[in-house]
Design a protein around this nucleic acid. Structure first.
Lengths: 163, 163
DNA sequence: TATTGTTATACTCTATAACTATA
DNA sequence: TATAGTTATAGAGTATAACAATA
């Protein structure tokens, strides 16, 4: 098995701090690096569609939600952002004609944001490239290995929600 | 097996875009989320030692490097940051008495940064807490599963370096 | 002429909180 | 009085590029 930079780092710690068991860093460090590398690759694809990561996430969330739309509050809670950050970005997408606000008649404080036809076209086209991109990032793993990794990560995430 | 939020998202895509095979999102999406959750947990530990993530990374890199120090150039290349960003943060650490610059006699443009005794004390104490923290994040996985995940991630990282 | 490292500028992004309107 | 959403302010962080000193 070929070694990576994390193997080097672990070997260095073994010398400087032989008393400390850093093996967890072998998992956490690699996951962090993988996430960074993948994030960069994904941002390139998003950028090709003139979207930031968060704009992609927002539009993708709208795309897979109820066609009647989603409220800004649901959106910022789903994406774990502040209301202000979401409002600002929503306004930009409105100005680009990619989404529009539909005001509620029941609760006049509230609105829903929905994708315009152009918005759907853009996110659908970005989505295809995004899936291609992810497939490429995972191509080095067999289907079974991909399933293994998904299962291991699910286990971590489910456990983390309880805390 | 209990399901997580990514399972929900995949089910939503299955309805809205049944033509699109989003299974790679099951791996990539979970890895991204896990990374974010872990990053938050790590930052809390770093903050308890009055360090940002990057300050911790910088000091940890110095700690495991040659005791004679490391040049700012090596540091920003290792951490994949700009020279300016590293210079600014180095200066902050100098002002806090955690590191100092040792100027080269061979090349008078160059210097090395080294941890002061206080710096070593701080990073060593932060490191112990950091390792404890990582152990806790991985506690839900067996040793064998942790090894599996490390191996899968190494495979991805090694393949990624070639591109 | 290239390289090491610092500094200054400008930019992006966000959280916070103030604010409006409505419930 | 609380909530939905927007807007304004301020802060953190960075990359870029200009800069000084040396190779």
């Amino acid at each position: 098995m070929s070694s990576d930079s994390v193997d080097t780092i672990l070997a260095q710690w073994k010398i400087v701090r032989p008393d400390l068991d850093c093996s967890s860093m072998g998992v956490v460090g690699r996951l962090r690096r993988t996430s960074n590398v993948w994030q960069d690759k994904m941002e390139k694809v998003f950028k090709a569609h003139e979207l930031s990561s968060i704009e992609f996430d927002m539009m993708a969330t709208m795309r897979r939600s109820d066609p009647s739309g989603i409220t800004p509050t649901e959106l910022y809670k789903t994406l774990m952002l502040s209301s202000g950050a979401v409002s600002t970005r929503l306004e930009k997408l409105v100005q680009r004609g990619l989404i529009e606000r539909v005001y509620s008649e029941q609760d006049r404080r509230s609105c829903k944001v929905v994708l315009t036809p152009q918005g759907i076209e853009l996110i659908d086209s970005a989505l295809v490239d995004h899936v291609d991109n992810m497939d490429g990032m995972l191509a080095v793993l067999t289907d079974e290995e991909q399933q293994q990794m998904a299962d291991l990560l699910r286990k971590v995430l489910v456990a983390g929600q309880k805390t």
